[in-house]
């Protein structure tokens, strides 16, 4: 448990940061909140030669609404920045709530939304709700930038499409037609617990009919995943308790959880059933919560 030696760079611009990353390749790592990186380094799981800190890149901070784009979240926003953001509280309280149920207050003060995404941990709490809300991520590299749906960002546990010279700069939640969204986390204690199962939904309801539904699951497959069959099953149908239970059963069948020290495969699948139904009911009844 001793932090190994490394060089530390804190560039003032994204461009400069990307150039450093390009120069060092896999020998460099980006340092945002460090809540995961520092622990991995102390345990000898990672030993980068260079840490590129994002702390002097001011454009990565802040959360605001941009006409024509939606809610733009700087990648360096901490979880508590999300929790306390007036814009998010007004438009998508569901995102604030998801951030609020992560880890513990100390971690929420330091850990960042960008780090939570780039780490690509299957049980991460923010990706499901952001995917349900159709969020996109912007990746800035030495040779330009690209924007892609968050849903297509992840490729496996701790793996994503991000290049070694790229930095995730912002997350964009586009304007919604959805009428409600929520994230339900099932952890094994009230604070400081990873999700055994996380279920996010976004629904569009009109006249008692589910016009559209998006269901995103965490901790039950190698990457956050959509339960597309369950979405199809309920699309265009009148909301009933039976329908929502059917959606839960369907989503449980779609996911592929593993058994680990936090829960068995069988338990996780059944929790997907329960929380898909509950999340749908909550989003339908209560809006973006």
């Amino acid at each position: 448990m001793y932090l190994p030696d490394f060089d530390y760079q804190s560039p003032g611009s994204l461009k400069e940061a990307c150039q450093i990353l390009a120069a060092f390749g896999s020998r460099a790592r980006v340092l945002a909140g460090g809540t995961d990186l520092m622990i991995k380094m102390k345990h000898g799981l990672l030993a980068p030669d260079v840490l590129v800190s994002l702390k002097n890149i001011s454009q990565l901070a802040g959360i605001g609404y941009v006409q024509g784009r939606g809610v733009v979240i700087g990648a360096r926003a901490t979880h508590n920045d999300l929790v306390n953001s007036p814009v998010l509280q007004k438009k998508y309280l569901s995102v604030c709530e998801a951030a609020h149920h992560m880890a513990n207050n100390q971690i929420r003060n330091v850990g960042t939304v960008g780090g939570n995404i780039v780490n690509a941990v299957p049980s991460a709490d923010l990706p499901p709700i952001l995917i349900a809300l159709n969020a996109a991520v912007k990746l800035v590299g030495a040779d330009g930038e690209r924007e892609l749906p968050l849903e297509s960002f992840f490729t496996g546990p701790n793996r994503s499409v991000i290049g070694t010279d790229e930095i995730l700069s912002e997350i964009v939640i586009p304007d919604q037609t959805s009428t409600g969204s929520t994230y339900m986390k099932f952890g094994l204690r009230r604070s400081g617990a990873l999700a055994v199962v996380g279920v996010a939904v976004a629904v569009t309801v009109a006249g008692g009919v589910l016009k559209e539904a998006k269901i995103a699951l965490g901790a039950v497959s190698p990457t956050p995943m959509r339960a597309v069959k369950a979405e199809e099953l309920i699309r265009g149908r009148a909301v009933t308790d039976e329908l929502l239970e059917e959606a839960g059963v369907c989503a449980a069948g779609e996911c592929s959880p593993i058994s680990d020290i936090r829960g068995s495969k069988e338990y996780r699948q059944d929790m997907v059933r329960v929380f898909t139904r509950r999340a749908l009911r909550r989003a339908i009844n209560e809006g973006h919560v």
Binding site: N104, L188, R189, R190, S191, G192, A193, L194, I261, R262
Partner: peptide, 16 residues
């Protein structure tokens, strides 16, 4: 040991 840390060896927290 699989959970020799305070994250996965879950003692109750103040809110529990």
């Amino acid at each position: 040991i699989l959970n020799g840390n305070l994250g996965e060896y879950r003692m109750p927290t103040a809110v529990d």
